[in-house]
Design a protein around this nucleic acid. Structure first.
Length: 286
DNA sequence: CGGTTACCCTGGATGC
DNA sequence: TGCATCCAGGGTAACC
């Protein structure tokens, strides 16, 4: 489920509950989700350690243990999420951290079990693994950097935006929002975007992600919730995702829900009028 | 190399 | 009510 704003919201919720606290025990209910060490090693590494910092790298949640005792990375992927001991234990809990003084629990639950729990012996290993899989963070990437990365590929711009190696944090929901905001069709060839178009795209990314973080992310159905079990509010104020057939906020025409090449089964929402497949001659350019 | 597809899993919603 | 089908926000690996 979670993309950058949802993961950022998780991290902000976890911080006050976890930072500075000693882990008294861990329960790994599904050891197949753990990579990087055995379940026994994981428990031995965590118990007694103090969680010094909780952070985000792209869509990864990073828990740093004090004194270089190691790092835990949790990838929620589609259906993973955290819940504090309140208000109630969620279903499908795969990992439990118990804390002492005062006693508390933090749960990681994941219905589809697509999530991953990674163990790294130290920050260098974690940083190397992150660097292998990710480009710059979507909140931090510069316009020229984005332009250079788009120039390198002739694939469609939407799958490029969702490629974590190009920039980290954008997934299916926010790609559609960003492309609508910058009036670009998702099938436009990345390398063919004109400087002004790349400028619009870059200018749209940060504000949309910031607005979504402010709303505490996007919730629908039984999916993503905050660590308190609350729904995020972004889908009440967004422009595209989940709004197939509804009027486009710019032109009033119907929003199209479709599928595009390069993204296997995932839906794409776009406004055919505001996001023309071919750039208008003389206009859309620089 | 770049792009496409299958697949990993499962719960919930929808349809017959 | 019961069963089949479809759908899903992510990511990797195999393949052409």
């Amino acid at each position: 489920m979670p993309e950058l704003p949802e993961v950022e919201t998780m991290v902000r919720g976890l911080r006050p509950a976890l930072e500075g606290r000693a882990v008294s025990s861990v329960e790994l209910h599904d050891p197949t989700m753990l990579l990087g060490c055995t379940a026994e090693e994981f428990a031995a590494n965590c118990v007694g350690a103090v969680a010094s910092r909780v952070g985000r790298r792209g869509k990864w949640v990073v828990v740093e243990l004090a004194g270089d005792a190691g790092m835990i990375v949790i990838q929620p992927r589609m259906t993973g999420g955290f819940r504090l001991a309140e208000p109630e234990r969620p279903e499908h809990v795969r990992l439990t951290f118990r804390l002492a003084n005062p006693d508390a629990s933090i749960w990681f639950s994941d219905a589809r079990r697509l999530g991953r729990i990674l163990w790294f012996d130290g920050p260098d290993q974690a940083a190397a693994a992150f660097a292998r899989a990710h480009g710059p963070d979507a909140l931090e990437i510069g316009r020229d950097d984005l332009a250079a990365r788009l120039k390198k590929t002739r694939r469609a711009v939407k799958p490029t935006l969702m490629d974590q190696k190009v920039l980290a944090g954008i997934g299916n929901i926010y790609a559609d929002e960003v492309l609508f905001e910058s009036r670009l069709h998702p099938l436009r060839v990345s390398a063919d975007l004109k400087p002004a178009e790349v400028g619009r795209l870059h200018a749209a990314i940060r504000p949309i992600l910031d607005r979504a973080i402010e709303a505490e992310g996007a919730s629908f159905d039984a999916g993503y919730r905050t660590v308190l079990g609350l729904e995020g509010g972004f889908l009440a104020v967004n422009s595209m995702y989940g709004r197939g057939g509804l009027p486009c906020k710019a032109c009033g025409g119907p929003i199209l829900k479709t599928k595009i090449a390069g993204l296997i089964g995932r839906p794409t929402y776009l406004c055919p009028k505001c996001q023309p497949e071919k750039p208008r001659r003389g206009r859309a350019g620089d």
